[in-house]
């Protein structure tokens, strides 16, 4: 972004620093879990494990986008946080409704209860943070 005069990406400074750190933890945790599930016992619960992989991918994209913080990245981060929120809500509901499809845990099943419900809170905090980032750094030069 040629018109950006800020020294550091706004979305990864201040409180955003912590947000990126938490996202990174979930990116690694979800990637690790999904890799293990798919490599070791994929046949046990294919749907749940594929969703684990999707979750991992979304966390990775969100982490990188939040850390970069240029205008495109903020947009990418907003999209991935939205997908993440939709994912945790849909998988959360599905895991209660259709228990047979989720015989094993994923990051998002039961609204992320296995991870202290952080997966449910994280996208909401992320979207709120991105909104404040967009508001405080408009596209004009400061």
């Amino acid at each position: 972004m040629p018109d950006e005069r800020v020294d550091r990406p706004r979305s990864s400074s201040g409180p955003g620093r912590i947000l990126v750190a938490v996202y990174a933890v979930f990116a690694i945790a979800a990637t690790g879990r999904a890799s293990l599930q798919i490599a070791e016992y994929f046949h046990r619960a294919p749907l749940a494990y594929l969703l684990s992989a999707v979750a991992a991918l979304v966390y990775i994209v969100a982490t990188v986008a939040l850390a970069r913080g240029d205008r495109t990245s903020v947009r990418v981060a907003t999209v991935s946080c939205s997908i993440e929120l939709a994912g945790v809500l849909l998988v959360g509901i599905a895991s209660y409704v259709d228990r047979a499809a989720f015989p094993d845990q994923t990051v998002w099943s039961h609204f992320g209860s296995g991870y202290g419900y952080v997966p449910l809170v994280l996208p909401v905090v992320g979207l709120l943070w991105l909104r404040s980032v967009r508001r405080s750094s408009p596209d004009v030069v400061r």
């Binding site: 400074s13 201040g14 620093r17 912590i18 750190a21 938490v22 933890v25």
Partner: peptide, 18 residues
């Protein structure tokens, strides 16, 4: 490393997360 790049209160906050 991530905390040292943040010269505000949020740097130590990263250490709390860790």
């Amino acid at each position: 490393l991530w905390a040292l790049g943040e010269p505000t209160r949020w740097g130590p906050g990263v250490l709390t997360v860790a």
